[in-house]
């Protein structure tokens, strides 16, 4: 992935794109389209709308490639365009809730309080009542498990889903995500924390009971 990114940074590749080289363009699409769909899906209600958002974003890329300076990476530039399209579309659907309200949204503990001994316990208050188990790694990267993780991510509330998709699925760093989503470092971390906690809980639940959830 990184090698490819470097390749696309080259002057030759950019020049080819500007010159209308279709093979260059198709390789760009192949490289970034799936990421863009996944990121867009984090912002909007359905896969179909996400695809539309991505189409819009590609139009922006096509018309903007001439004036793209190369000061940032191509990936970053494309993601900025995409995020703007996604936010606009998300707002139109009245789906995007201001992040400030999401973060302020009271108590969302990482683990259900019943998993711990409460304060009335004479010993080990705050300790595990039902401790977490060891997971066998072999099971975990199975298609079944990855599918579960993907669905758990889709079930997340808006702000949490966007952050975990950009950070953990797409591998952007904290600064990049804060910049794309207009979040403070602290708010981004709260959303990431809640998102990861829920996905972990979904995995744990499945491993324990075999039930997948919606």
């Amino acid at each position: 992935m990184d090698a490819l990114a470097t390749q696309e940074q080259t002057e030759d590749f950019l020049a080819a794109l500007r010159a209308g080289d279709e093979r260059a363009f198709l390789s760009l699409v192949e490289q970034y389209h799936p990421t863009m769909v996944r990121v867009a899906r984090g912002f909007v209600g359905t896969e179909a709308v996400a695809e539309e958002v991505v189409q819009d974003a590609w139009m922006g890329v096509i018309s903007g490639i001439e004036s793209f300076q190369g000061r940032s990476s191509l990936k970053w530039w494309i993601l900025c365009i995409l995020t703007n399209c996604a936010k606009t579309r998300g707002q139109k659907e009245r789906r995007t809730v201001p992040f400030s309200s999401i973060v302020a949204d009271g108590d969302d503990p990482a683990v259900a309080p019943s998993r711990f001994l409460d304060d009335s316990q004479p010993r080990w208050a705050g300790g595990w009542a039902a401790p977490p188990q060891v997971w066998g790694e072999e099971r975990l990267m199975s298609d079944e498990m990855l599918d579960l993780v993907e669905r758990a991510i889709h079930r997340l509330p808006d702000g949490q889903r966007e952050v975990i998709v950009l950070r953990d699925v797409e591998g952007l760093d904290s600064n990049q995500v804060c910049s794309l989503l207009g979040l403070t470092e602290a708010n981004q971390r709260v959303l990431l924390h809640r998102a990861r906690s829920r996905v972990r809980a979904a995995l744990e639940s499945y491993i324990a009971t075999g039930e997948r959830g919606p």
Binding site: P34, T35, V37, R38, V111, P131, P132, Q133, V134, W135, E137, L140, M141, M145, L146, V149, E150, I153, I164, D168, V169, G171, R196, V199, R200, L203, E204
Partner: peptide, 19 residues
């Protein structure tokens, strides 16, 4: 174990395959 579970969760998210 909990920390490991979190780390596995993060790795799993990072492994979601390209379509």
């Amino acid at each position: 174990h909990y920390l490991e579970q979190m780390q596995v969760t993060i790795r799993a998210a990072g492994s979601l395959t390209e379509h």
